[in-house]
């Protein structure tokens, strides 16, 4: 029996203006599983991901790798669940790529030599080692996204939380990213995306969110083929699946 990596019970969250963002979400993700979170714009996919890293705190009981989400356990949780934000510009905030990737490991109190090793490893994994001393501003969107991924990988997380990892990335690097995610099969992954091909290839399970509610979760093939279900939630069966 595999352990639960993420345990979400009765998650409710409202924005400061009172709008309900997440309503009664109950969801477990097991270790090594890759969960694709799909749904129309504004369904609450990003908001849901932000809860799994303790950035947002709705009134709920969330456990990450058996650790209860509390103020004092946040550092532990954040070093175990790495979050890739949708906007890489905000995720890269230090003057150079090196310092940015080093930010997380330094917060985990690694020594100077260890930090240098993990930073180089992480940049190598996303094929960006040549850019180590560059200023993030000079990079293209796709390059920023890859470095943002390196900043997460450098913390050696057990769980990867990815928010729209393939949006605005060119086809080649999108393909590289998909293959890379497939190789990381020892990590638990939660991927919020509109890229159904990515879901189909990488994920072992799919959760469909709409208007903050969990509509259903299950086998990717079954859900992605369900024409009426997808159409009811502003989604579409991909062509390569329907033919």
């Amino acid at each position: 029996m595999t352990r639960k990596a993420i345990e979400v019970k009765e998650l409710n969250f409202s924005y400061p203006d009172g709008r309900k963002a997440l309503v009664d979400i109950n969801l477990d993700v097991y270790e090594g599983e890759a969960l694709g979170v799909i749904g129309p714009n504004g369904a609450g996919k990003s908001t849901f991901l932000l809860h799994l890293n303790g950035i947002l705190r709705g009134n709920s009981k969330i456990k990450i790798l058996g650790i209860e989400m509390e103020n004092k356990s946040l550092p532990q949780i954040r070093s175990r669940a790495g979050l890739l934000f949708q906007d890489s510009e905000n995720q890269l905030f230090m003057p150079t790529v090196f310092e940015d990737v080093a930010f997380g490991p330094l917060n985990m109190d690694l020594s100077k030599d260890e930090v240098e090793v993990v930073v180089k490893e992480a940049l190598k994994e996303v094929d960006m080692l040549d850019y180590i001393y560059h200023h993030p501003h000079h990079l293209s969107f796709g390059e920023k996204r890859r470095i943002a991924l390196a900043t997460v990988l450098a913390m050696k997380p057990k769980i990867l939380l990815l928010d729209e990892p393939t949006s605005n990335v060119d086809p080649k690097h999108r393909r590289d990213l998909i293959n890379f995610l497939k190789e990381l099969d020892n990590l638990t992954k939660v991927i919020a995306t509109h890229d159904l091909e990515l879901v189909f290839e990488v994920c072992s399970r799919v959760a469909l969110l709409d208007q903050g509610r969990l509509i259903t979760s299950g086998n990717p093939l079954e859900i992605l083929k369900d024409k009426t279900l997808l159409a009811a939630h502003s989604l579409e069966v991909p062509r390569w699946l329907s033919s």
Binding site: L50, N53, I55, P75, R78, S79, G82, L83, F85, D87, E89, N90, Q91, F93, E99, A102, F103, G104, L106, N107, M108, D109, K112, V115, E116, T151, V152, M155
Partner: peptide
């Protein structure tokens, strides 16, 4: 808004108010 998001991104990577640099 960007400033808020940057702060969230910092928190997500374990920022606790102390800046560590090498």
């Amino acid at each position: 808004e960007r400033a808020e998001n940057v702060y969230l991104a910092m928190c997500a990577r374990g920022f606790d108010g102390n800046i560590r640099t090498i």
